[in-house]
Simulated assay, not measured.
Amino acid sequence: MHYGAHRDQWLEYYPPQQLRARGAVMIIHGGYWREKYTASLGAPLAQDLAARGIPAYNLEYRRGPGSAAQMLADAKLAVGLIKEEEPITVIGHSAGGQLGCLLAAHDERITQVISQAGLLDVGLAKSLGLSNAAVDELLGPLPLASYDPVELWPMRARVIIFHGRDDTDVPVKIARRAAGRAAALGQEHSFTLFDGDHFTWIDPHSSQWAACVRALSPVHY
């Protein structure tokens, strides 16, 4: 389903083989907001959810230098195509976790965000210069606070923060500080560390992905 004229403005729907859940889940892929990383990263997760009876959507969005406002606008448009009623959970990996939280802060249809090694503290990521100053590349002249999840909390949606102890792409200190900010701001959240690196989360056969599925259970079943 296309929600705009750009080639990257589309949302792929994965219908459940046998409906067993309420609401829907939207997958948002990561890749430090760069164009070479695509929604193909999220497709296996959406397929797995559909096989479990959960309506699943896999988001593609505009990325690249200076795309912060465009990607948020895209996510807002895309969630409008989800036909199911609440609950809607966003599962976002890496930069997708950041975008998922931004979306939830702007759209009350989102009831839960599951952050898989998410870039939830963009200010800290900027100060660390992660991925060759990816934050500066993303924002350009735009204000950081408008695109930093921890600056938009508290919000209605619950945030589940999952992170790998061996993550060298998004250091675990990002998750720890985000969890601390959530606690201080009164943002409903949970924080769990797992073994594994940055990419185990997007392997549908991993124990890390199984934890994400379990986090859906009390909300969607």
Rank of each mutant, 00 (worst) to 15 (best):
E60C: 06
A215D: 12
R177V: 07
P143S: 13
E84A: 14
L99D: 00
P204H: 12
D8L: 11
L19I: 06
Y147T: 12
I28L: 13
E60A: 14
H106D: 14
R62P: 02
D107Q: 03
A125Y: 04
N58K: 03
I27S: 03
A210T: 13
I54V: 15
D74E: 10
F191T: 07
A78P: 11
P204L: 09
E151Q: 15
R109P: 10
Y57F: 14
H205L: 13
A117Y: 03
A178K: 04
I91T: 06
L124E: 09
Y221I: 09
T111E: 13
E151N: 13
S146Q: 15
I160M: 03
Q98D: 14
G118M: 05
D148H: 12
G140D: 08
T192H: 13
A105P: 09
L138N: 08
D195S: 13
L41F: 12
M155C: 10
V79I: 15
D203L: 04
Q208I: 04
L11S: 06
R177I: 09
A183V: 01
S94N: 08
D8V: 00
W201G: 01
Q47A: 14
M26N: 05
R109C: 09
A117Q: 02
G64N: 07
G53K: 03
K173E: 15
I54T: 09
G100D: 00
G80R: 14
G30K: 08
A125K: 01
T192D: 11
H189D: 10
T89H: 04
G180R: 09
H163M: 08
A75Y: 05
T89E: 07
L120A: 02
T111L: 06
N132R: 13
Q17M: 06
M26Y: 01
